[in-house]
């Protein structure tokens, strides 16, 4: 079903994404896929030596990828114009990431919507805050 600019209201919530718990295998896959071989994400002994008590931590970009998934599950990727995040907390294997978002602005002149997004774990600890902008098609115009 097509998403139109006219269907979006300021204050409207984006569909929530609840991810599978992050596991270490997935972190290895992410390292291979992204080229980020920082041992902090892969080697428990190394991470512990740097003060991470439970061992490895998750790459921030891996969590951002999950936020990107949540956005493009709702807004088709081709409409996404800008996507930025701030990394505010450490994610670890076992964490269940929930991504939520809300429309904070819409501009009729260019059919642009601006939304805030947040990724947090099962205890409500915030990992990422960010925002994105998308230009949506209009029911009245061909875009």
């Amino acid at each position: 079903m097509e998403l139109y600019f006219e269907d979006i209201q300021v204050g409207q919530e984006m569909p929530t994404l609840v991810a599978e718990p992050i596991n270490k295998i997935q972190q290895v896959m992410y390292a291979g896929a992204s080229g980020d071989f920082n041992a902090l994400h892969l080697d428990d002994d190394f991470a512990k030596a740097l003060g991470m008590q439970g061992g490895v931590i998750t790459a921030g970009m891996q969590v951002m990828g999950k936020v990107g998934q949540a956005i493009t599950d709702w807004v088709p990727k081709k409409y996404l114009k800008k996507f930025g995040v701030r990394f505010s907390g450490i994610t670890k294997p076992g964490n269940i990431i929930t991504v939520t978002g809300k429309v904070i602005d819409k501009q009729a002149s260019n059919q642009l919507i601006t939304c805030e997004v947040t990724a947090q774990d099962e205890t409500g600890n915030v990992k990422i805050t960010g925002r994105f902008e998308a230009v949506l098609p209009s029911k009245s115009k061909n875009t």
Binding site: Q26, M29, Y30, G32, A33, Q62, G65, K66, G68, Q69
Partner: peptide, 8 residues
């Protein structure tokens, strides 16, 4: 490969 690692 990247989306598979993300789980997207």
């Amino acid at each position: 490969e990247l989306v598979r690692a993300i789980g997207d």
